[in-house]
Nucleic acid binder design. Structure first.
Lengths: 332, 332
DNA sequence: AACAGAAGTGAAATCGATTACAATAAATTA
DNA sequence: TAATTTATTGTAATCGATTTCACTTCTGTT
């Protein structure tokens, strides 16, 4: 494999490397016939600029890393598309990093920023602590967050108001006549979990319903744990008629449990999830779920992050709170 | 943000940059107390080597790009995990590239190789033509293929024997008593489609059943087209009792069509898909499907590709044909 | 005709590392 | 003790681009 470098092009076109560089990047300040010569030399040699050399000198990679905790989670796909399309349209590439649910890997990916493999990093509902994230941001590296909100002047965040839609879910269930509503939360240290629980409680208060601690269980955001959580709830208390699961995976676990216990949905048990993933439409009955504008969240955050990286200071705030909507289907 | 470079470390440790580099990489040829000095300087300055400088000089990025045609397709997740784990264990990072079903994007990603953003590239069931792929490989760039087989001395490929399992599917359906079996293929130029069709035909021959061209339709590997293909099949011919869809997405389309036509599965219509994605277990009845050892395919190919990149010539062949298995569920 | 300003181009420094080669000091051998 | 290794370390070239600065031509103005 014999590759041509810029000097080869310069030689063939009988100009200096500076000129070649100008033709390939700058655009304007070069004469018409010189430009032609260079361009034809580039053609002849089939020249492609070497990314490493370019990046080293310009101190830019034009690349963003997107860190997700598990590539198997459907939830991310749409966010990533939003990120990617916005990034591409602004001249950036993205690199998807799958942390495989390991905190250690998430930390490792932070170093992509430090060693300048990427210019910026987007964390989607990370396991990392606020402290760890802030520490890196404080050093001047560009980080954006999706699905989480950290109050820090340098951290753009894009998230939905968990408490708000949690409240709406309860309102909806109450409207449907439910009075005893259980809640299955995700892992305890996730801000999402916290907000959704808060919304659940507010919803109860709105409806003047009592808050019963034993109607709360933890399901770690996955199907099996959701199943187990429901079983624990039932073991303790048999008279609730609806469950609000903090995500669809856990709602699926509830479905499994209901099938085993021969509880019909929604008659004997109403179920509501969050994320409105594709799968919710394939089970019977389809699961009522909260739809977050994932694509938009990804796109907006990316725009903001890149803007901030390039110091185009924005007047408006850096927190992008978007609205979600409840998609009512057969399960409630 | 004030970052320290190697020269800063050298200065603080009162040694040359060469020595610092040796401590950080080489390992052996440096005195014990010097090493200590350097290490402590690295600590003090919180020094992290700059990836760009390193890559430029060493002409290696230790990164592989994995190109998928659509991140929303569940199918890929497991393959990617296989790739990632193997790559990491060999010291490589991976970069996931979502082509969003656009051929143009796939082509674009090929340039990551040419401009040395990555050292190698793995294509998963790409839309690119053999010719285009071979052209790049012939220039000496490292490419690996998953889910497709191109006969070329430099292209490691990992794939399942489509014809073989296609045949098994038909055998299974015939065993269940079906005599008129329709086939819905993916897009026509995909080798997967071709092999599966071949298996279908062989299966018919084995069972001494006639090959009826009008029982074949194309569904482009996605749900909506699968639905449409089934509808076209029914419009032409009403007496087939089973469908073999070349992937699960299209099988889901068939489910939708059957629901509309009020055909019960599997009694009035048996359905078999390929890939055995998670979703197949959530619909009623769960879909019989062919399970490919995706994780293994990813891992094996990656090992082979990296090996080839580093010129550790392998004695055995570069084509990794793995076996798949039919998972029989309620739809057949 | 003389001069200011603009436009086009090249030489050389630079980004941050690695590494071939040279140089020095210490240790071994004769 | 002189000669030869050996073990460490430093100097400087290099990877492949971008970019500053200076220089040469033109053009237009007075």
């Amino acid at each position: 494999m014999k590759e041509s470098k810029m000097t080869d092009v310069a030689q063939l076109a009988k100009v200096s490397v500076a000129t070649v560089s100008r033709v390939l990047n700058g655009g304007s300040l070069v004469g018409a016939e010189t430009r032609e010569k260079v361009l034809s030399a580039v053609q002849q040699l089939n020249y492609t600029p070497n990314a490493m050399g370019k990046q080293l000198r310009s101190r830019k990679t034009m690349t963003l890393a997107v860190v997700i905790s598990d590539i198997r989670v459907f939830y991310y796909a749409e966010i990533i598309q939003g990120i990617e399309n916005m990034a591409n349209s602004l001249g950036y590439k993205i690199l998807i990093c799958d942390a495989q649910n390991q905190l250690a890997k998430e930390k490792e990916f932070l170093s992509l920023l430090v060693n300048h493999t990427v210019d910026g990093l987007i964390l989607i509902t990370p396991k990392l602590s606020d402290k760890e994230i802030v520490a890196v941001a404080d050093k001047g590296y560009s980080i954006g967050l999706i699905g989480r909100n950290i109050d820090h002047p340098k951290l753009p965040c894009s998230y939905t108001d968990n408490a708000k839609f949690g409240r709406q879910v309860i309102e909806h269930l109450v409207e449907r006549g439910h009075r005893k509503i259980a809640f299955i939360s995700g892992y305890a240290d996730a801000t999402d979990s916290f907000g959704r629980l808060e919304g659940y409680m507010k919803g109860l208060r709105d409806a003047r319903l009592p808050f019963v601690p034993e109607l709360i269980e933890n399901g770690d955001f996955n199907e099996d744990e959701g199943y187990a959580a429901f079983m624990r709830l039932r073991a303790r208390n048999k008279d609730f008629t609806a469950v609000f699961a903090a995500n669809d995976e856990m709602a699926l676990g509830v479905y499994k449990a209901c099938a085993e216990l021969e509880l019909t949905i929604p008659d004997q048990m109403a179920v509501v999830g969050v994320d409105n993933v594709r799968l919710t439409n394939y089970v019977k009955p389809p699961i009522t779920s909260v739809q977050q504008p994932l694509y938009t969240m990804g796109a907006l955050l990316t725009e903001k992050l890149i803007d901030q990286m390039n110091d185009n200071v924005w007047a408006d705030k850096r927190q992008l709170k978007v609205d979600s909507s409840l998609v009512i289907k057969g399960s409630s």
